[in-house]
Amino acid sequence: MRVPAIYFYYLYFLACLQLRLGLSYLRHYSTAPKPLQENSTEDVKLPVNPLEHPDYFQVHNLFTVKDLFDARVHYGHKEGSLNDYMRPYLYGSRLGHLIFDLDITAEHLRKALNFAAHIAYRGGIICFFNRNAMNSHKVERTAKECGEYAHTRFWRGGIFTNANYQFGAVTRLPDLCIFLNTQNNILNQHTAVRDSAKMLIPTIGIVDSNCNPNLITYPVPGNDDTPVAIELYCKLFKEAILRGKAERMKLLQEVN
């Protein structure tokens, strides 16, 4: 009898919050890792289609909202720089600084991780992007460690849109771009965001409160400057990709 009561309290609480923020969206309430859904490959003989499974690579248990909080993912920029499209992801503002709602962030991040793992599972090329000099080495190392690619340098125009000319040969472009920040500097968006959209390359992007999430396929609202936060993202994406690849190896062995 008690459970429903708590549930109603919770709904009431949510309603209050929404009133306070003037936001109209449904709140997601996942913080703790869900109990693992068993990979049906183990108990059932029939191989399951990974695409039909909601969380085939168990990316759900990679992190908790507490981890995000500890990594300072919830810090946005100052109020004045807010991009209107980022409004739905905010929890509020404190001392003039915007704060992200980590429940929403967690949801988006899990979707993004799941997608990255799927791409890795299918042998796709994943390219990491970051234009922040402080974090770029970390990002490059992540890419190297998970056997993928990185571009943290000046973006020469046309690398995607004019690839055959730029590389002097027919070139396979990445199948997924992961932006650990989507801005070139505080004013301009990274050109690769636009170019990926042009070339129909899906993108995952950590979008801070001053970024525009519109061209990003899987936007993840969160802090994109702090090294700790970037380290967490790198760790998570690396783990997801490695899980995807491990599954792939397993399948390869089964098939052969």
Binding site: G123, I125, C127, E140, A143, K144, G147, E148, Y149, A150, H151, R153, R156, I159, Q166, F167, T171, R172, P174
Partner: peptide, 16 residues
């Protein structure tokens, strides 16, 4: 600079 599936060998290939 890439294998049969078109995957580049170098992890910084896309920087040019």
């Amino acid at each position: 600079e890439f294998d049969e599936a078109g995957r580049p060998h170098h992890f910084l290939f896309y920087t040019g």
